[in-house]
């Protein structure tokens, strides 16, 4: 038993902690979906798919966006607000480009008769990639809010926590994408 009086230790900021647990949750959702994928890939009538090239472009885009996000955080910490705003806007646009490219990828697949009917990996792809794109869009909205704040708010009052929380999330959706891509390459192909 802990009898010695312990003083509260310096802890992680609660909002960051909230984000990490939320990420755990999101991981579980995608784990559910990808394990469903594995189960189904062992069934009859399984049609594997080839990933259209749009997804490679989108991968490049989201990777770059992670870098710009990181640079934005650094700029914020150095109080280089103009650079920060620019990088934030750039990240945001890259996020939108990513989602658009995903959409083109879906259209490409759909035009190859890979639709919701019948069995196969295609159905999963739409749902899993679609859900991931929604998470990216959620991040875009968050960045938009921060961008507005950076423009209209009194910058001096800010703490770095919201920016850091946003960047944790942004890197997470990036890594999640890489995981999903590799997953589909290995098991879906």
């Amino acid at each position: 038993m802990d009898i010695v009086s312990t003083h509260q230790k310096q802890k992680m900021h609660p909002h960051k902690f909230v984000m990490w647990i939320a990420i755990g949750s999101i991981i579980m959702m995608f784990a559910g979906l990808t394990s469903a994928f594995i189960v189904k890939s062992n069934q009859t009538n399984w049609n594997p798919i080839d990933l259209p090239h749009e997804f490679w472009f989108s991968t490049a885009v989201i990777l770059i966006s992670s870098v710009t996000m990181q640079l934005a955080v650094r700029a914020f910490k150095q109080r280089a607000m103009t650079t920060y705003r620019r990088l934030l806007a750039f990240t945001l646009v890259l996020g939108l480009v990513f989602v658009t490219l995903q959409w083109f990828g879906f259209q490409n697949l759909w035009s190859q008769q890979i639709t919701f009917s019948g069995g196969g990996a295609g159905q999963f792809l739409y749902i899993i990639f679609g859900l991931h794109a929604l998470h990216v869009l959620g991040g875009v909205v968050a960045l938009l809010v921060m961008f507005c704040k950076a423009f209209f708010g009194k910058t001096k009052l800010y703490s770095a926590v919201p920016v850091e929380v946003a960047s944790i999330y942004w890197h997470f959706v990036d890594i999640l994408w890489i995981y999903l891509l590799i997953f589909f390459l290995i098991i879906g192909g």
């Binding site: 949750s25 579980m28 959702m29 559910g32 469903a36 919701f116 009917s117 859900l131």
Partner: peptide, 28 residues
């Protein structure tokens, strides 16, 4: 809750698609 509810969410999401969009996750 935080680790198991998301899995139910993914399960019912697939069910929703099966019901409304003609996918075959659970039907054969």
């Amino acid at each position: 809750g935080v680790l198991s509810f998301p899995v139910l969410l993914s399960g019912v999401l697939l069910l929703f698609f099966d019901r409304n969009l003609g996918t075959s996750f659970y039907l054969s």
